[in-house]
Amino acid sequence: MKDVFEIAVCDDSSFDRFVIAEMIDGYFKDKSFLYHVTEYCNEGTLIDDIEESNRYDIIFLDIYLNSLLGIEVAKKLRSGGYNGKIVFLTASDKYAVESYDVDAAGYLLKPHNYEKFCNVMDRILIGRRKNTIIVKKRSSVEYISYDNIRYIESSNTKCLIHCSDGKVHTIYTRLDLMENDIDDKRFLRCHRSFLVNLYYVRSMNENFVMDNDEIVLVRKKSIKDIRRMYLEYNSNAVLTGDLAEIAGA
């Protein structure tokens, strides 16, 4: 995936900004995630930038800033529509309870501890776990379970993830890469442009008919092999009970 996590660090202490930036660097490199950090020494510039672009996935926000408490800054951001993750930085736990009012993702006490930092980040990025695809949005990150994917469609330089709730998510990557990343027996590369979740297939003729009546194309020259794999999946699904739920949907 080529998605980049946009992260803001807002603290009036240059030393504390440096420490958090170093922790972010270590954590994201260890996870092999792409990221970009923007540092702010005052809350006014951060608020202005959020109002203009709302681009940050995660904001590390000091409680004691120049003219406003971090809690008040967070309230302004939330009221302005920011729905990303906010992690508070502070030398005191005085405002820990209030942090829940703005749906804070974490509360890190100074001096900063890398292990505690990683624990907070793991909770934020729990969607990175197996059987989940991360989709980067403008101001947030969304985690899509394999269970909820009907099929993935290649479209020029991007992939369209068609989900069971009717939503379609876009990722800028190649279908070949997604096929390699998804290690799940339910998914079958049935066409140059399609990777289908067999769980949601209602029937097969020349192509797959999905549970919502959408058509997913099948590669003509491989139709016999694809039909065989589809029938094998159905046989195994009947034995394990995986087919019953979709058949009755």
Rank of each mutant, 00 (worst) to 15 (best):
residue 1 M to E: 06
residue 1 M to P: 07
residue 2 K to V: 14
residue 6 E to H: 08
residue 6 E to P: 01
residue 6 E to I: 03
residue 6 E to G: 04
residue 14 S to Y: 00
residue 19 V to S: 02
residue 22 E to C: 06
residue 23 M to F: 15
residue 24 I to E: 02
residue 25 D to I: 04
residue 28 F to M: 13
residue 29 K to I: 01
residue 31 K to I: 04
residue 32 S to M: 10
residue 32 S to C: 05
residue 34 L to S: 13
residue 35 Y to P: 05
residue 36 H to Y: 09
residue 39 E to Y: 00
residue 40 Y to A: 00
residue 40 Y to C: 00
residue 41 C to Y: 00
residue 41 C to W: 00
residue 42 N to D: 15
residue 46 L to I: 02
residue 49 D to W: 01
residue 51 E to N: 15
residue 52 E to D: 11
residue 53 S to N: 12
residue 57 D to I: 00
residue 59 I to D: 01
residue 59 I to N: 04
residue 63 I to Y: 09
residue 63 I to S: 04
residue 68 L to C: 05
residue 68 L to S: 09
residue 70 G to T: 04
residue 70 G to P: 03
residue 70 G to F: 06
residue 71 I to Q: 11
residue 71 I to F: 15
residue 72 E to V: 03
residue 79 S to T: 11
residue 82 Y to F: 15
residue 83 N to E: 12
residue 86 I to T: 08
residue 87 V to F: 02
residue 90 T to S: 15
residue 94 K to R: 13
residue 94 K to L: 08
residue 98 E to T: 05
residue 100 Y to Q: 01
residue 101 D to T: 13
residue 103 D to L: 13
residue 103 D to A: 15
residue 105 A to T: 06
residue 106 G to T: 07
residue 111 P to L: 04
residue 114 Y to P: 07
residue 115 E to Q: 13
residue 116 K to I: 02
residue 117 F to D: 10
residue 118 C to P: 02
residue 122 D to C: 07
residue 125 L to S: 10
residue 126 I to E: 13
residue 128 R to Q: 10
residue 128 R to G: 10
residue 129 R to Y: 03
residue 131 N to L: 02
residue 132 T to W: 05
residue 135 V to T: 10
residue 137 K to P: 02
residue 140 S to A: 12
residue 140 S to K: 08
residue 141 V to G: 04
residue 142 E to M: 07
residue 142 E to P: 08
residue 144 I to F: 11
residue 146 Y to L: 10
residue 148 N to L: 06
residue 149 I to C: 05
residue 151 Y to Q: 10
residue 153 E to S: 12
residue 154 S to D: 04
residue 162 H to G: 05
residue 162 H to Q: 08
residue 164 S to K: 15
residue 165 D to A: 04
residue 167 K to H: 12
residue 167 K to G: 07
residue 168 V to E: 12
residue 168 V to C: 14
residue 175 L to E: 02
residue 176 D to S: 13
residue 178 M to Q: 10
residue 179 E to P: 03
residue 179 E to K: 09
residue 180 N to I: 03
residue 184 D to V: 03
residue 184 D to E: 13
residue 184 D to N: 14
residue 184 D to F: 15
residue 186 R to N: 15
residue 192 R to D: 11
residue 197 N to F: 07
residue 198 L to Y: 09
residue 202 R to I: 01
residue 203 S to Y: 12
residue 206 E to R: 12
residue 206 E to M: 13
residue 206 E to Y: 08
residue 207 N to T: 08
residue 209 V to H: 06
residue 210 M to P: 02
residue 211 D to W: 01
residue 211 D to S: 15
residue 211 D to I: 12
residue 214 E to D: 15
residue 216 V to I: 08
residue 216 V to R: 11
residue 216 V to W: 13
residue 217 L to C: 13
residue 218 V to S: 01
residue 218 V to L: 02
residue 220 K to I: 10
residue 223 I to K: 07
residue 228 R to W: 09
residue 229 M to H: 14
residue 230 Y to A: 05
residue 231 L to V: 03
residue 235 S to C: 08
residue 236 N to K: 14
residue 239 L to D: 11
residue 239 L to F: 12
residue 239 L to P: 00
residue 240 T to E: 12
residue 240 T to Q: 08
residue 241 G to S: 09
residue 242 D to P: 01
residue 244 A to I: 06
residue 245 E to W: 08
residue 245 E to F: 14
residue 247 A to D: 05
